[in-house]
Design a protein around this nucleic acid. Sequence first.
DNA 1: AGCTACCAAGCAAGCGCTTGGTTTGGCAAG
DNA 2: CTTGCCAAACCAAGCGCTTGCTTGGTAGCT
Lengths: 197, 197
Amino acid sequence: MPDNPSIHGIDNSPRGRLLSAAAQLFRAKGFDRTTVRDIAAAVGIQSGSIFHHFKTKEDILYAVMEEVIRFNTERLRQAVAAADTPLEQLRNLVRAELTATVGDTREAMTVMVQEWRCLSEDNQRRALALRDVYERLWLDVLGALHEQGAFRADPFILRRLITGMIGWTPNWFSANRRLSLDDLADLIVDRVVGERP
Amino acid sequence: MPDNPSIHGIDNSPRGRLLSAAAQLFRAKGFDRTTVRDIAAAVGIQSGSIFHHFKTKEDILYAVMEEVIRFNTERLRQAVAAADTPLEQLRNLVRAELTATVGDTREAMTVMVQEWRCLSEDNQRRALALRDVYERLWLDVLGALHEQGAFRADPFILRRLITGMIGWTPNWFSANRRLSLDDLADLIVDRVVGERP
DNA sequence: AGCTACCAAGCAAGCGCTTGGTTTGGCAAG
DNA sequence: CTTGCCAAACCAAGCGCTTGCTTGGTAGCT
């Protein structure tokens, strides 16, 4: 009965424990290379018992994604609300998404980016609708900054560059190095609004 | 006998045609969801005949990656050689990697990023050794720029942010839109050295 | 003759998922 | 406090299908 550290925002009901274990396995081995027998073994049950909680293996993947989007959308909302100026809102957004990406929901976030195409078209549409809410938070803040002349580039394009910078961090950033998460956040903010000497 | 547009840098020997078809399928469906029967059908042969050209399915994946790294390392070398100042070398590097990522080797590059963990550890090590050569070209130019004070950040960190920005472009950039590839390259260069008004 | 490229057929293993039945914990009636 | 009951959670076994890969043989070119 191995206990995996649970992922932030997921409770530890039987279902929640399955989700945490699945997220970690999906991230480590990929969705296709992870068998239902793997997931079952990780929480100490038989493989068939999984289908008492989820209809299909893909439903587990979708559930992981839905949980992590919902949790982090709320995190972003609070990040925006906690600052007064658009610049500080941006800094909070970058910190929040970095925390989601390399911090407490790291596994689930990575899974969401990398295993997107393993979802059926229906589930992709549903997940996309949730992501739209998430993205609107970013675009509002970037739009405000653009209007007050903080940068010249198109906010939509800039958001995509930010997504790339942050989305790649799991492949190299490690928390216990010289560079702190906040320093990295400042570095990324500088890429958007230019450095202030 | 469907003919797939071949990927730049791969000849059209039987082996080369298999590689091009495999790269496109790997990108579209992922390595695991692509069967040897899919690849065989794409070039119009029987599934068993593939193993006359490659020992295992994984060897096909590795071959795709090796070809695309070798081809694009050479491209980067020429990009550096074609400019005199570090700033123009950087601009050429960004253009070259963008071309590789969303242009003529798009499928193979995407595969390399997304299906990395499908390689065995041995093949991962070999591919990593090839990537190191590629990365050194970037770090040399970024190091020169840093020494002449073009930016303050750590060149290693900056390279990773660039990798992220460019690596994410296949998910949104499309060639026939308003934003040209060169404009996007300039936009990314500005994120590194700051905008020049 | 010998080499490259291929076909036709199929094997062994692993996969997602089903099935029918058993354990467990909580809770209200007697 | 016991009893009867129910739903949630789980087990043991295995079915049907797909997978990567093998085998033995053949066509065509040099």
